[in-house]
Amino acid sequence: MTSIPQHASAAPKMETRGLEIRYGPKAAVKGVSLTLPERQVTALIGPSGCGKSTFLRALNRMNDLIPGASASGEILLDGRSIYAGHLDAVELRRRVGMVFQKSNPFPKSIFENVAYGLRIGGLSDKRELGERIERSLHSAALWDEVKDRLGESAMGLSGGQQQRLCIARALAVEPEVLLMDEPASALDPIATAKIEDLIHELKARYTIAIVTHNMQQAARVSDQTAFFYMGELVEVGPTEQIFTTPREQRTEDYVTGKFG
């Protein structure tokens, strides 16, 4: 599928054109053209193996790390190719951050977890480091819960807190786009609600793409929803439309639970 009309009023922050991703001979993503509108949440839904996570990981070149993976087509950030010379993978991943399904805090203190990316980026000024960390923890809605124990191990936090810590860590380097791969699938409903509430707040400043198997979650958090099936982008549209009146039969079957 080459182009599907989208109903995004916001400017495109990221855009793919005819993106094809292969693992060896097998195409995992087939000719996908999709726009992530600025400061909106795009949900990527579809059954397992439909290519949505592969697509997400392509947006900050995480697939480069997988042997045998290759990509063709275009991926644009602010209208410029992410493979162009002006942008190396490290800088790209600073601008396009990622939060994974399983929270993966480093076995370090809460403070050091958030400071990690900043230190790698060369920031050593203690006061600025402290400010940036506080701001990130505030943004991740975790500050009030950890402000009195920043020196304690991150491993002592609950699963939901660990996930918000990972979000704080991603936010610390001030990205522009945030990619989330099933960020709440391992969390209880309260922790999930906190993450979803956080996504609502974060979209005022960031462009967000979220992969989720939980369709109600996609419906709750996103502005537009893209349905992937067997590597193709079947349909993309305003989330309300996808969940009330999808245009494609395959989308209809998926959101109503009619996939065998």
């Binding site: 369709m215 969940f243 009330t244 009146t245 989308t251 959101v255």
Partner: peptide, 9 residues
Amino acid sequence: RQPAASDLR
């Protein structure tokens, strides 16, 4: 069931 699409309609 949180019906969607044609089921919701």
